[in-house]
């Protein structure tokens, strides 16, 4: 619970987007991706991760019907 809340605020802090902006970015990304592939929009995960030498937006777009 605490972990999820922390992750949520950190995504916004790190990427400097509001949750509305984040949401519309997600929608636009889905729009683009669905032009080419079949993504399962209910299972999308987005996270901003700090790594060794960079901060990266890591997104997971699971494909429909795949496992």
């Amino acid at each position: 619970m605490a972990k999820e809340r922390l992750q949520f605020v950190l995504v916004q802090d790190r990427i400097k987007l509001t949750s509305d902006e984040m949401e519309s970015m997600k929608e636009e990304l889905i729009e683009v991706l669905t032009k080419y592939i079949d993504v399962d929009s209910s299972k999308i995960e987005m996270d901003v991760k700090r790594e060794e030498d960079m901060t990266a937006l890591v997104a997971n777009f699971p494909l429909k019907g795949s496992r």
Binding site: A2, R5, D13, R14, R50
Partner: peptide, 14 residues
């Protein structure tokens, strides 16, 4: 170990 403190720590790292 509190969400608010860890969040601010993240800011500081940046």
């Amino acid at each position: 170990p509190e969400v608010s403190a860890v969040r601010d720590a993240d800011r500081i790292i940046g």
